[in-house]
Amino acid sequence: MAAHDLKDDAVRGHSRRDFLRGSSVAAATAVLTGQATTAIEEAKAAESEPKVLSGELKITLQVNGESRSCTVEPRSTLLDTLRHRLDVTGPKRVCDRASCGACTTIVDGVPVYSCTTLAVACQGKKIETLESFDTGPAGVPHAFHQHDGLMCGYCTPGFVTACKALLDKNPNPTLDEVRRGLDGNICRCGTYIGVLEAALAAAKAMKGA
């Protein structure tokens, strides 16, 4: 990580303490410090007084059909939470800046970059990683395997996930639609030809199943 301390571009002048004291901020009373046992559900229940979460938080995520609990901070990304706290290591951290797609995860049915999604914001949502996909002949992983849509394989989880999400939405994609559907993912080994073949083959196989 860079050593330089980059300045916040917001205009400075108030310290955190100032706003905690601020009488206009009802919410400040709800600021939780240290180990917070209150989860977002509770915050949502008390809608009139939205809770502010801080420090270490115990959260529960629905990952691949299971309830998984762990301790995070508000700044913990979904990706780092999956990988570092829940040992769900299918999604990979590559660019860590919403560019390469290796971290692609399906949240409430929609593929997103988990490197740029906060874990706290995912409570109550259905989180699917490729570990939950059908590995049989009708599944996307099988097609990637058979068509050699992978080399080193580090981008592959992202491609497989983006491909699965694409085919769930569009079971009959054209080649150009497959390309566009996978444009949020980057491979460095240069395995795109196998990927495109795999995606088209998976579309066929999924229909046949």
Partner: peptide, 26 residues
Amino acid sequence: MKAFDYAAPTSVADALKLMEPPHTAA
């Protein structure tokens, strides 16, 4: 990324209240 406090309001009114302190980002 520096640590921050976090809130997820479900209404615009709550959001406005939460946005009041300085150094708050939506």
